[in-house]
Design a binder for these strands. Structure first.
Lengths: 224, 224
DNA sequence: ACCTGAACACCGTTCAAGT
DNA sequence: ACCTGAACACCGTTCAAGT
């Protein structure tokens, strides 16, 4: 909702909250979380660092606004037709892919859990739980469980790419992790070692993500 | 495993990796994530900032070591008797309480998902899944789902206290959040508003955490 | 081998001064 | 009303110099 006083005589490239947030997103996508700097932002917007503070209170507000913009955009593409379970799956996959495309978003959604960005997801999930006729006093806990799972696993998945050399392909990355796990102490980490030997190398992140989601949905269905 | 060369003639207060990690934990607990600074750490240890780098490669390694120390200590107190479900509940509650007591740990476990701290939890969960006779090819996804859920919800819970004034009591905090949610747009956020009106104020974080965990456990049991 | 502390290259944020 | 850019109070990390 831009103020009606914003008249047309302004330069097209005048600073605005929206332009700042867009530039911040671009910076975050290009250079990661550390890439977002008031100085870098000012350079990209061809202005002084201080100018940004006229439109945005501080860095945290910028991160919150950027997250909200991305999540709103992404959720807008998710249709709510289909069964409640189908819709929840769609919302979950949408977030998985969005966070994969913007790894900084995962961190941000975990860090600021009750900002509007997260609430939008919470809301969408809640509708589907109501459609499933989940008992009223179980809706909150169920929605929280789904929300935490979705954001947690998606962030973890997206973060994996960044932990080691970002130039690494997925296969090489898994190879390295598997090798590391197999070198763990045999007494202390038998399960982890076994996973590394059998499943880690060719597991499918998206499939596992959906499998875990299915567990929660099954649990919800069983309690109806 | 201290090197055998560490002879007794050393001053008792000589710098060591262990003393540094302990001081880092104290700093993190007292002053939060921002409180851990090489300068503050040096002051507390009565040394120069650069000295720390002789024992620890960088700040990240310090965070990883601190997390590992806390998680190892905490998990050590969790008995593995009882049924697998009971043990998983104990591990989950242990992490919930530990992260509640050390809020920085939640952030750290999410940020560095495959460091030993997280792997210790993964391992413990894995053992119980094997004891439950979960199908081999479902063990990885199930363990990941449980791990993400536990860390995700615990972090969120612990983070809540820090978002607003830390001097705020829990009741006042929930009151503020509920009031904020009820002011959200009625068209866009009906579910969130309803939760704020009905369940948010007197929900029990631990109980909801366990309820969500139960959903996953029920889903796992249903797939056996 | 281990410690010191100044120095370097950054940050977020503020604010007097400009238009 | 909006922008500028120097200044402030910090960071993590390095490194020559000490013991």
């Amino acid at each position: 909702m831009p103020k009606p006083t914003r008249s047309s005589e302004r330069r097209d490239d005048a600073l605005s909250r929206e332009r700042i947030v867009d530039a911040a997103i671009a910076l975050l996508d290009d250079d990661g979380e550390d890439g977002l700097t008031f100085r870098a932002l000012a350079t990209r917007l061809e202005t002084g660092a201080g100018a940004i503070y006229w439109h945005v209170a501080n860095k945290n507000e910028l991160l919150v606004a950027a997250s909200d913009a991305i999540v709103t955009r992404a959720l807008g593409d998710v249709a709510s037709c289909g069964t409640p379970h189908e819709t929840i799956r769609s919302v979950a996959l949408c977030l998985f892919d969005t966070i994969d495309a913007h790894p900084w978003l995962g961190t941000q959604l975990s860090r600021a859990p009750w900002e509007t960005a997260t609430l939008r997801v919470f809301e969408r999930i809640g509708h589907q739980l109501q459609a499933l006729a989940v008992k009223a006093d179980a809706q909150f806990a169920s929605a929280c469980a789904l929300l935490s799972y979705i954001i947690g696993v998606s962030s973890q998945n997206a973060g994996n790419g960044l932990l080691l050399d970002p130039s690494l392909g997925r296969t090489e990355f898994l190879e390295i992790v598997a090798a590391k796990w197999q070198q763990l102490d045999a007494q202390e980490f038998p399960f982890t070692r076994q996973i590394a030997a059998t499943q880690l190398r060719d597991h499918d992140d998206r499939a596992d993500f959906l499998a875990g989601l299915e567990l929660i949905l099954a649990g919800i269905a069983a309690a109806l």
